[in-house]
């Protein structure tokens, strides 16, 4: 079978020549004697979405903040494949470089949209900020792109000059996503992106995120305690407990055939609808 052989070779080529976008090595963060997270290792490849699940206090948010540069880990490396210089450890890179990265190739979606938005600035200004931060100085272009992004996150163009305080929770969250994605980042950190939203609003947001992830070829790390969210969004899963990674694997495999005692407990605790 010729076609069959081509497929095999394609599969192989696609999985083997690509290098990881993010390599996490032995990350540890302590709060005094208490462990925030420790011994975390993984590779994230371009286009991959990885979920990090665990209960409150499991260290998943600490880990995400260490990876995104919001917290300084006590040990370990977070190696990002930068556009200009290839793989660089972002823990030891200079602060200006890291901040530039977080305005360009990285994005961070907060659980509470208000943490990630400027509430005194219009929706258009919120989206435009990252463009202006990287040097766009043409009002017309900035506004056009802001309006384009409002459309992509399903917010009416007529709301471009309204402040986010006048938006519903779901709209604020979508605005936050637009504000983050407008510079075409390659890696998105999300902290409970659907937390605190109504179920129907969650579904809409998940659908939107899935579409954007595929269209833009985004890689994403999603911290959540909601297993339904990771089943729909994440390719891979990492389960954390007490600061340690207890299990990793394909999302559906971890959820349908959990190996670790804690994961089994977690999966069996979910209410079936």
């Amino acid at each position: 079978m010729r076609a069959d052989k081509d497929f095999r070779e394609n599969t192989r080529a696609r999985t083997e020549t690509v290098k990881p976008l993010l390599q996490v090595r032995e990350i540890e963060k302590r709060y005094g004697a208490r462990i925030g997270c420790t011994g975390v290792n993984f590779d994230l490849y371009p286009g991959e979405v990885m979920g990090i699940v665990g209960e409150s206090g499991s260290g998943k948010s600490t880990l995400l903040n260490c990876l995104a540069g919001h917290l300084e880990p006590d040990a370990g490396q977070v190696i990002f494949d930068t556009r200009a210089d290839g793989p660089v450890d972002t823990v030891t890179m200079s602060e200006p470089e890291r901040r530039m990265l977080s305005r360009t190739d990285w994005a961070f979606v907060h659980q509470h949209a208000r943490d990630g938005l400027r509430t005194s600035v219009s929706a258009g200004g919120n989206i435009g900020e990252r463009l202006m931060a990287v040097g766009d100085r043409h009002y017309g272009n900035i506004r056009e792109r802001a309006i384009d992004w409002l459309g992509r996150v399903e917010i009416s163009e007529t709301r471009v000059d309204d402040r986010p305080t006048a938006f519903s929770g779901g709209m604020q969250q979508r605005l936050q996503i637009a504000r983050n994605l407008v510079t075409g980042p390659r890696l998105v950190f999300m902290d409970e992106p659907t937390g605190g939203l109504d179920v129907s609003v969650q579904a809409r947001l998940l659908d939107l995120l899935r579409g954007l992830v595929r269209e833009m070829g985004l890689s994403a790390l999603i911290v959540t305690h909601d297993l339904a969210v990771v089943r729909l969004l994440a390719d891979r899963l990492m389960v954390m407990k007490d600061g340690h990674v207890v299990e990793t694997g394909l999302t559906d495999q971890v959820l349908d055939d959990p190996q670790h005692a804690y994961t089994q407990l977690l999966v069996s605790s979910v209410l079936q609808v």
Binding site: T11, T15, L250
Partner: peptide, 27 residues
């Protein structure tokens, strides 16, 4: 690859599902 094999070999094409990395299975 939805269930994790305890041992043995599961070849689909030239990928061994029983031992492949998640991204290989995704591909």
């Amino acid at each position: 690859g939805n269930y994790l094999a305890a041992s043995g070999q599961i070849l689909v094409g030239n990928v061994d599902v029983a031992s492949a990395e998640p991204r290989e299975i995704l591909a």
